Measured scan of single mutants.
Amino acid sequence: KKYKIKVYVKDKKTKKWKKIKEIEVDTKEEALEAIKKLPPNYEVKIVP
């Protein structure tokens, strides 16, 4: 079972969220580790 991490950042001009990358991992633990490495201003969604 794979997890997709969708990473969004808020556009300063439009104030809208835009997706900047998608990370695919195998476990939820890996997903949480990957999220920890991202800057705090990123919004993250984990999709099972």
Rank of each mutant, 00 (worst) to 15 (best):
D26E: 12
V47Y: 15
K45D: 04
P39W: 04
E29I: 10
W17F: 07
E22Q: 05
K1T: 14
K12M: 08
V9S: 06
L32T: 09
K13M: 08
A31D: 00
K45S: 11
N41E: 15
V47C: 06
K12T: 09
T27M: 02
Y3M: 07
K19F: 11
V25H: 03
K12Y: 12
I20V: 14
K19S: 03
V7W: 04
A31Q: 02
K18G: 03
P48G: 12
P40R: 06
K45W: 08
V7P: 00
K13H: 10
V9A: 13
T27H: 03
V25F: 14
D11F: 02
P39A: 06
K18A: 03
A34K: 09
E29Y: 09
V44E: 00
L38I: 08
W17V: 02
E33Y: 04
K36G: 10
K19C: 09
I46K: 01
L38C: 04
I46N: 01
D26W: 11
E33S: 09
Y42R: 13
K36I: 06
K28I: 09
K19R: 05
Y8A: 00
I46P: 02
K10T: 05
W17H: 03
I5V: 12
K45R: 14
E22W: 03
P48V: 13
V47L: 08
P48A: 11
K15L: 08
V47W: 10
A31K: 01
I35P: 00
E43I: 12
I5R: 00
E24D: 15
E24R: 06
Y8S: 01
Y3C: 05
K4G: 02
E43H: 15
D11M: 06
E29A: 14
K15F: 05
K1M: 13
D11A: 06
K36E: 09
E30D: 10
A34F: 15
V9I: 14
K37I: 09
D26R: 06
K1D: 10
V25A: 08
Y8F: 06
Y3H: 03
N41R: 11
V25L: 06
L32Q: 14
V44Q: 01
K21A: 09
K45I: 10
I20F: 08
A31W: 04
N41P: 04
